[in-house]
């Protein structure tokens, strides 16, 4: 079977962007594909509602690495709310097309991103709740002291 990758796909495979681990990320996701056995890990750093930094690791084929690479390039600096609507078709278009049997790589990359955002939101949620609890505690303390 012949695989026809575009020059851009090969560039991203040979020189992937934003590759590597991240210490203490705000959002993390590990995603695997049951069909082909590939695996991606995503790390997000968020600041003021924007994706400040993103990194990924890959156990996968050339297109798995390339699709994740180009996606991280595109979402870096994006508002989290906008990143939630990021579509896999943008990856395919940007790479100048992918072989039919490799389209699922781009879908997997986007799924990984969404999972990492959910993980971030869960943490934010917990952080908020914790902050609220602490505020309440403080307030109660003040009330008690006033009494």
């Amino acid at each position: 079977m012949a695989l026809k990758y575009t020059k851009k796909t090969i560039d991203h495979f040979l020189h992937p962007k934003n590759i590597g681990k991240m210490d203490r990320p705000d959002g993390f996701a590990e995603i695997g594909n049951m069909v082909c056995g590939d695996q991606l890990n995503f790390y997000l750093k968020v600041d003021k509602g924007k994706i400040k930094d993103v990194k990924f690791l890959s156990f996968g084929c050339a297109s798995n690495i390339a699709t994740a690479s180009i996606m991280t390039e595109k979402i870096k600096g994006m508002k989290v709310e906008d990143a939630k609507n990021f579509k896999w078709k943008e990856i395919v278009e940007d790479l100048g097309g992918l072989p039919q049997q490799k389209i699922h790589c781009s879908i997997m990359a986007v799924e990984g991103l969404q999972k990492a955002i959910k993980d971030y939101e869960k943490h934010i949620d917990e952080k908020l709740k914790k902050e609220v609890r602490e505020e309440v505690k403080k307030a109660k303390k003040i009330v008690v002291e006033k009494k």
Partner: peptide, 12 residues
């Protein structure tokens, strides 16, 4: 590591 990635890398 994944075989197809090795193959493509080597072919370059």
């Amino acid at each position: 590591v994944e075989g197809e990635a090795i193959l493509i890398d080597l072919s370059y």
